[in-house]
Amino acid sequence: MRPRTKKLLFSFSLLVFLFFYIPILFVVIYSFNDSKLGTVWTGFTLEWYGSLFQNSQLISATMNSLYLAVITTIISTILGTLAALALHRYTFIGKKSVEFLFYIPVVIPDIVVAVALLAIYGILNMSLGLNTAVPGHVAITISYVMLVVLARLSSFDSSLEEAAKDLGANEWKTFWKVTFPLILPGVIAGALLAFTISLDEFVISFFTLGPGDNTLPVLVYSMVRLGVSPEVNVLSTIIIAIMFIVVLVVGLRMRKRGEVK
């Protein structure tokens, strides 16, 4: 690249980073603002942080989010890994259609999944609760696990499996002693992805949870609708800080080992 082009690209990219981070920065700053109303700075305080940790709604919403994310991750990781093994190993009739089916959850608007499930629940007269959000969460995360594990499998040397078989291991033993340890990093990456997507999912939860069962994003939505408030500033700041730490720590570690793109 010519130096002038490079300089231009650098300045432009700096602006994009500012565009990303300036709004976030203001949330963080205002979380320490003494004033209860609006955005006028009246002084530094940690008061809102203290009151947030006594908010029982918030604690139950967090627990619900974690519960859903754990259940979703377990189911999607198992189902997605099995599917990836099938798609990697075998050529079979209907493979193209199966692959197409797995790409649908990646691109489908979440509101369509949400209202479709709501309609089914409605017609079956099912009462909504925390677990009625599980089917939707799993449906949109299976594909991500499958694709991540599949990517790992494609860089996998199948002669290792053949060697194990030649040495007398049966299929079951070959899988647990050879295949599984080798694809494990892919399975873990897929599981992390499923966990994060579920934790972050708003629309499907909004439609398919029971009236009293909030998850964190649903609670944030109901708070944000009421406008700017110290509680939301603090809650957002904490979530942003956790994201920052998790992304940097997990990301840098995985990148170092070359496990995630």
Binding site: F26, V220, Y221, V224, S236, I239
Partner: peptide, 10 residues
């Protein structure tokens, strides 16, 4: 990865 609602709130 930060929730869309929070980023819109910002």
């Amino acid at each position: 990865w930060t929730n869309l609602l929070i980023r819109l709130y910002a």
